[in-house]
C-alpha cells in the first residue's frame, strides 16, 4: 500500500532532483546573462562522457569518493570549455539582442553532439552505480534505491549551498546586484565582463558536474544532450526567470505531478509534466518566485 501512494512521490522527487541538478547552471547563466543556453545539454553530455572515460581509465572498481572526485574533474574541464565559449561566443554577442545568442547556443549544441560522436563514437555505454550506493532501502513494500536517496540528498545540498551563497555571502550579494542592474554595478567599480566570465564558467562547471554525478542513472549516447533541456527550460521559467529557489520548487512540483500522472494515466506517460507546466504559466505567469533574480 505504501508503495502505491508514496512510490510515485519518491520517484517524482528523484526525477525532480535530476532535473534540478541539470538546471542549476542553466538558471545561473540565464538569471545573470539572460542567455537561454540550448547548448547546456551538450556540455552536460560532455561532462558525462568525460566522467565515463575517467572511470574506465582510473577506477574500474568505482568507489563513491572516486566517483564524486571524477565528477568534479569533469566539471572543471567543462568549466574551462565555458571560459572559451564565453570569450569566443557569448562576449561578442553581449550587445546584440538576446535572441541571437539562441542561434549561437543552438550551433554549440550541434557542435558538441558532433564532437562527442567524433571522440567517443555512437555506441551506447553505461556505468554501474558505485558499490556503496547500490542496493535499496525497503520500508514495507516501498523500495527506495540508495542511489536515488543519494541524488535527492545531493539536490537538496546543492540547493542549500547555492541559496546560502546567494543570501549570506558577499559574493552572493554581488551576484544579485549585477543580475538586477549590471550598468549600476559597473559604475560602482565591479568588473562586469570578468564577472560574467566567472558566471559562465561556474554555469558550465555545474553542467559538467551534473553530467558526471548523474552518469550511473542514464545511458550514455550522443542523444543525451537534448534529453533534459526542454524540462529544464520549463522549471527555469515556471520557477520565475532564473532564480534558484524558484527552479528548485518548480522541479519538485512539476516532476511529482508528472510522476503521479504517469502512474494514474499510464496510457499517456510523460504528458503531465507539460500540462502542469502550461497550467502554472497560465495561473502564475510571473513564475513561482516573482521579481527576484537568482
Amino acid at each position: 500500500m505504501l508503495a502505491l501512494f508514496l512510490g510515485p512521490l519518491f520517484n517524482g522527487l528523484f526525477t525532480a532532483m535530476v532535473v534540478f541538478l541539470f538546471a542549476t547552471g542553466l538558471t545561473l547563466v540565464f538569471g545573470i546573462l539572460r542567455i537561454l543556453n540550448f547548448a547546456h545539454g551538450g556540455f552536460f553530455m560532455i561532462g558525462a562522457y568525460l566522467a565515463f572515460s575517467l572511470v574506465k581509465t582510473f577506477a574500474s572498481d568505482t568507489s563513491t569518493i572516486a566517483y564524486i572526485l571524477i565528477s568534479i574533474v569533469a566539471g572543471i574541464v567543462v568549466g574551462l570549455c565555458g571560459l572559451v565559449v564565453e570569450r569566443l561566443v557569448f562576449r561578442p554577442l553581449q550587445h546584440v539582442d538576446e535572441a541571437y545568442s539562441l542561434i549561437a547556443t543552438y550551433a554549440l549544441l550541434l557542435i558538441s553532439e558532433g564532437a562527442v560522436k567524433a571522440i567517443w563514437g555512437v555506441s551506447f555505454h553505461s556505468i554501474m552505480t558505485p558499490a556503496a550506493l547500490g542496493g535499496a532501502l525497503i520500508a514495507g513494500d516501498l523500495v527506495m534505491p540508495v542511489f536515488a536517496i543519494f541524488i535527492i540528498g545531493l539536490g537538496v545540498l546543492c540547493y542549500s549551498l547555492l541559496e546560502w551563497i546567494l543570501q549570506h555571502t558577499a559574493t552572493g550579494k554581488l551576484m544579485k546586484s549585477v543580475a538586477s542592474d549590471p550598468w549600476m554595478a559597473g559604475m560602482l567599480g565591479v568588473n562586469v565582463p570578468r564577472f560574467y566570465a566567472w558566471i559562465v564558467v561556474i554555469g558550465f562547471f555545474l553542467a559538467g558536474l551534473a553530467g558526471g554525478l548523474l552518469l550511473p542513472n542514464q545511458t550514455l549516447s550522443p542523444n543525451l544532450a537534448s534529453v533534459f533541456v526542454v524540462q529544464a527550460f520549463g522549471v527555469l521559467i515556471v520557477g520565475g526567470m532564473g532564480n534558484i529557489r524558484g527552479t528548485f520548487l518548480a522541479s519538485i512540483l512539476l516532476c511529482v505531478i508528472d510522476s503521479y500522472g504517469s502512474v494514474i494515466f499510464s496510457e499517456v506517460p510523460g504528458v503531465f509534466f507539460y500540462v502542469a507546466m502550461a497550467a502554472m504559466l497560465l495561473m502564475r505567469p510571473q513564475g513561482l518566485i516573482a521579481g527576484a533574480r537568482l
Binding site: G7, N11, T15, V143, V227, P269
Partner: peptide
C-alpha cells in the same frame, strides 16, 4: 503490460509496478 514513454529517462515508477 506496463506502458512506458519511448525515450524515457526514468523508469522507476514502471519498475515499481513490475516488482508488484
Amino acid at each position: 503490460p506496463i506502458w512506458a514513454k519511448f525515450g524515457a529517462t526514468d523508469y522507476k515508477n514502471e519498475i515499481v509496478q513490475l516488482m508488484r
